[in-house]
Design a protein around this nucleic acid. Structure first.
Lengths: 230, 230
DNA sequence: CGAACCCTTGATGGCGATCAAACGCCGTGG
DNA sequence: CCACGGCGTTTGATCGCCATCAAGGGTTCG
């Protein structure tokens, strides 16, 4: 493990409140591995053998059905993923692949479940993490059900801008084709959707989006009354 | 509380493993109330004051945005709902209304959070419940993203049939207009979708659906490789 | 330098929403 | 007991959003 990485992982909400010694047990039972780009980490239907923590790089979670794929989430460092499958000890509902070279901590699922049983702080953190994830999915589902594609894009821009906190400028970290799939549309239509929000206060230039008129954009995208958690 | 109700609530996965005494503390701090049909229990954006347990009746959870509503879940007895908002102590992301006269246990959110902190079994059950709910939502979201409407209907029929275990016959408990909203379509198109699956091994008659050719229906609907949990 | 590949733009088609109207069911009131 | 009215469901016609098909421009990497 590189210097600075362990503290960074320790700062994760999931592990933050644990006893130092317990956390050390998790680290020593896990593997930190480097993966090349475009590598499949696991596939839908497999038993959940590991909890994953993305330390550096970029990972895509996607689901497949009916001959198609759709990306469910783009994971940025430092974040854990696929926690629900580990907790329930049931097969993964999504597949995962690296988008770029990535450093990933693999925590054996059995170890995590064991630790959860004995460490109240870890159990509480897990519970909380799942509750937050649940709410994110509720938002994603309502978004999909009641907004059309350009509105979804507008909301994503607004939400990213809030998370990046970078004064009206949003940096798109993933390829646009991936964004399209995340938003539940085709690359072609994402392109057109950027055209649409261009007339509503947001300008694209490559992978940079500038919000030129937030009020207009919000009027168009109708963001959720209840924002990402707190 | 009626005879038979308390045992039924105690059998809920959420409360099943708790100490008898602790469970009693929850009951004694809660209110069992009867609500008329079509009554709004709470609305999106409100603080999460209660955890709800539907004891008898039928409840709809729905979200609103962009001037429209969409139903997110139809709750049947005996089930708890809106757990994630209670755990995170954040505003509800959905609204709830009774569909018919309903008996509902209201557990003060503060009490639940307090009990979770002190009762490991309750915390574990909560964690598990949230993980299962998370996975349900992942399925719902992929369903929405990669299947078209008649396929979604087909899957719902198959899933209900498995849950009801009633040999090829499914009883629709809610109005069709509600089903339509749950499936993310209009009542008109639900009607047409029933027409479509009629040609793929499922027949409707009022609120009864008969699966006449499961293989055909599965071939058409392409059900998830990983089913509802385990 | 060439070949992928991504992104964009245009043309067409299909799924599903909307608008409209008729039917059936059910509860109410005459 | 029947007539009426309201509402949910169904069926048909039209429209709009988005997917698909197709082609061209730009960038990256071998």
């Amino acid at each position: 493990m590189r210097p600075g990485e362990k503290p960074e992982i320790s700062r994760l909400a999931l592990f933050r409140e644990m006893e130092e010694a317990e956390r050390e047990r998790i680290f020593s039972g896990s593997f930190l591995q480097v993966f090349p780009p475009q590598l499949t980490l696991f596939e839908l239907g497999q038993r959940a053998d590991f909890l994953y923590v993305l330390v550096d790089g970029l990972v895509e979670l996607y689901a497949n059905g009916a001959g198609r794929d759709t990306t469910m989430r783009i994971v940025e460092p430092v974040t854990s993923f696929i926690l629900a499958a580990v907790v329930t000890d049931t097969p993964y509902l999504m597949s995962a692949r690296t988008l770029v070279a990535s450093r990933i901590l693999l925590v054996p699922a059995a170890l995590i479940r064991e630790m959860i049983k004995h460490d109240g702080a870890l159990m509480q953190a897990t519970m909380h993490e799942l509750a937050l994830g649940y709410r994110d999915l509720v938002r994603a589902l309502t978004d999909m059900k009641l907004r059309q594609s350009a509105e979804r894009l507008g909301n994503l821009i607004l939400q990213q801008e809030r998370r990046q906190g970078s004064g009206g400028v949003v940096q798109l970290r993933a390829e646009k084709r991936l964004l399209a799939s995340l938003l539940g549309m085709t690359p072609e239509n994402l392109s057109r959707a950027f055209g649409v929000i261009g007339r509503h206060g947001a300008e694209v230039d490559g992978s940079l989006v500038r919000i030129t008129d937030r009020a207009a954009l919000e009027g168009f995208a109708r963001p959720d009354p209840v924002k990402a958690d707190d």
